[in-house]
Design a protein around this nucleic acid. Structure first.
Lengths: 134, 134
DNA sequence: CCTTATGTTCAACGTTTATTGAACTATTGA
DNA sequence: TCAATAGTTCAATAAACGTTGAACATAAGG
């Protein structure tokens, strides 16, 4: 009898809410955690280079199991899409769904985070800062 | 000797963070609670009529002590300003500070909430809904 | 086949959170 | 002066949260 602890192949085909199932309070709560905000921010910074990043690329933000916890939250609230490829998981922002559901919200959060990048201890991306007085 | 339980006249001159002290994660966390989101939403709806509402105007959203708890959170994170007048407390959104600090964020949240007003059980304001397909 | 790398799951923990009712303060109006 | 009103504070509770390390699953490379 195989172990029941691991339910089917959840980790190979992770659950994602549909666009309509994405809820505003859950999204806001997800973004309110500094680590998760940093993950979203980092994804947003490379969006124009590559929409995806590997989970391991975020190792600067915490330990493996802690990051797995935060990735799960981001996935379950609809902020991120996870794709399994070999032993890697690639994550990306669900920008289309979020923009459709909550127009302007994601950009407002990311721009606000960019203004406070130092205070929030976000790894500063390439050239994100627009010369705008605080 | 007077009771030490009540520290000076905190409840008469409540503490508010300065504009610069307003932090993004705290604001997002504050807005992620359904009751607080409903409070902010209701304030935003009447903004063009009156910028202020009395605490008692929100009694539909919960009990007195629970609301006092949520008002304190909204005040401490910088979302709301509280003004004491007699036995009443009047609250208003700190829109200028929020828009200066996090441009577009408050409107994006309020518009997103408006789209889901029914799902979020927000008391529908007067004529807030713009005919925009979900 | 065995080892390594990547990431998840689980159990445990201490902390924070939202909610309640009772006690309390302060002001208004009779 | 007394009662009523508006709202805060406190203590207690249960639930949710973030963090940790150990165990596990899966796939890739030698």
């Amino acid at each position: 009898m195989r172990s029941l602890r691991y339910d089917s192949d959840m980790s190979r085909t992770p659950l994602h809410p549909t666009r309509e199932q994405i809820e505003l309070p859950m999204v806001l709560d997800c973004l309110s955690d500094p680590i998760r905000l940093a993950i979203v921010y980092q994804l947003a910074q490379q969006e124009h280079i590559s929409s995806e990043l590997c989970c391991g690329d975020f190792s600067g933000l915490g330990g493996k199991s802690n990051l797995a916890y935060h990735f799960a939250k981001l996935r379950e609230c609809g902020l991120m899409q996870t794709r399994v490829a070999g032993t890697n998981r690639f994550v990306r922002l669900r920008r289309e769904d979020l923009d459709a559901r909550f127009p302007g919200l994601l950009d407002a959060v990311i721009n606000s985070a960019a203004k406070d990048a130092d205070r929030l201890q976000l790894l500063s991306g390439c050239d994100v800062v627009d010369a705008q007085s605080n």
